[in-house]
Amino acid sequence: MDNLKKTRLYDAHIKYGGKLIEFARWMLPVQYEGIIEEHEAVRNAAGLFDVSHMGEIKATGKDAFNFVQNLVTNDISVLEDNQVIYTFMCYENGGVVDDLLVYKFNKEDYLLVINASNVEKDFQWMLENKMNYEVELKNISEEISEVALQGPKAQEILQTLTAFNLDDIKFFYCRRDVVIDGIKCLVSRTGYTGEDGFEIYTNNEDITKIWNSILEAGKTYGVKPAGLGCRDTLRFEAALPLYGNEISKDITPLEAGLGFFVKLNKKSFIGKEALVRQKEEGLKRKLVGFEMNERGIPRHGYEVTSNGENIGFVTTGYMSPTLKKNIGLALIDSKYTELGTEIDILIRNKSVKAKVISKKFYSKNYKK
């Protein structure tokens, strides 16, 4: 593991008993106290995540708006200054390059936050599609560290460390001038857990102070440091997609049930023609939720069958810590996607019965 990258919070993870694993060429904590304990802390109080491995690309210049608008599936023309939007970059065939957040500071200044595993690929894709746009693209991923404070007590905790009124940051908005414990930060009301919370970006040198200050301030509120393990169970319960699972170069946003973030009435964007065609022809496969009727935990990649015939595969599956049920998401043949349809999950070469249910496993608790 010596050749893996470490975030500036590596020593803090060791101090708090983090169990480190390799993720996207980074050494990151999968858990501290335990996945269930950390998951429940986020649902009931707050959890603090190191997400410094995420990638950040700046897009600035006269044509920054036109460049980003052509690059992504969502419509950034609706954004106000300091607003954030969730979207996809797609290949010409409609497959997903990556999912990302676009932060608009003004019409000539955007920040694109991308997945750690895709930073080099994504940045190359952006450069290849820069064309004649007058826009400067800069990969600042190595200069920025980021933590995510998530949970119903997140605002109360963070408010003790800043004079800035956090009520002024609405859901999916941001501010670049929030001073937390003496350190200037970019703070957005965004996250990946289905709970209210904030993502906090600052310079590498200052992130350890931010981390320690939040954990100290949050002691009486029940905050816990949280790892990648519960990050995945939390986002899964909230039916939030993971690149490489629910979306990929081989799975379009429409197949994943994420058409809301694909504005086909937009004048143009990369992949539009393929996605328009896919919608017109009808989806041959769709992402569904399912619940196990028999014992067994479904896992990513497990085969889904009906009457012995392969109809798709599990994209994510867990014993849900909140629902206390074995549930999953699967991409399957559209003929089998009606709620209540019985399907089989192949677990260690044995067919285990399941049924199709709504993907809305957990009601999101965002502060609008």
Rank of each mutant, 00 (worst) to 15 (best):
F65Y: 13
N66H: 15
V68F: 08
Q69A: 07
N70E: 15
N70K: 14
N70M: 11
V72I: 12
T73V: 03
T73H: 05
T73I: 02
N74E: 07
D75L: 10
D75A: 05
I76R: 12
I76C: 04
I76W: 06
S77L: 04
S77V: 12
S77H: 08
L79S: 03
L79C: 04
E80F: 10
E80T: 05
D81Y: 14
D81L: 07
D81I: 10
D81S: 12
Q83N: 09
I85S: 05
I85P: 02
I85L: 11
Y86D: 00
Y86E: 10
Y86S: 03
T87C: 01
F88C: 00
F88K: 04
M89K: 08
M89A: 14
C90I: 05
C90D: 09
C90K: 11
C90T: 12
Y91P: 03
Y91M: 06
E92S: 13
E92A: 14
N93L: 12
N93S: 09
V96Y: 02
V96T: 02
V97L: 06
V97T: 05
D99N: 14
D99Y: 03
L100Y: 02
L101F: 13
V102K: 02
Y103C: 03
K104S: 04
N106E: 10
N106P: 05
K107N: 14
D109E: 12
D109R: 14
D109L: 11
Y110I: 02
Y110E: 01
L111M: 11
L112G: 02
V113K: 07
I114S: 00
I114Y: 01
I114D: 00
N115M: 08
S117H: 14
S117P: 12
S117I: 13
V119I: 15
V119Q: 11
V119S: 06
D122T: 15
F123V: 05
Q124H: 09
Q124S: 15
Q124V: 10
W125S: 00
W125H: 03
W125A: 00
W125T: 00
M126E: 02
M126Y: 01
M126I: 08
L127A: 08
L127E: 07
N129W: 09
M131T: 09
M131F: 13
Y133I: 09
E134D: 15
E134M: 09
V135Y: 05
V135N: 00
V135P: 02
E136V: 11
L137K: 00
K138E: 11
K138R: 15
K138C: 08
K138D: 14
N139R: 07
N139M: 02
E142D: 15
E142H: 08
E142F: 06
S145H: 14
E146D: 10
A148C: 12
L149A: 11
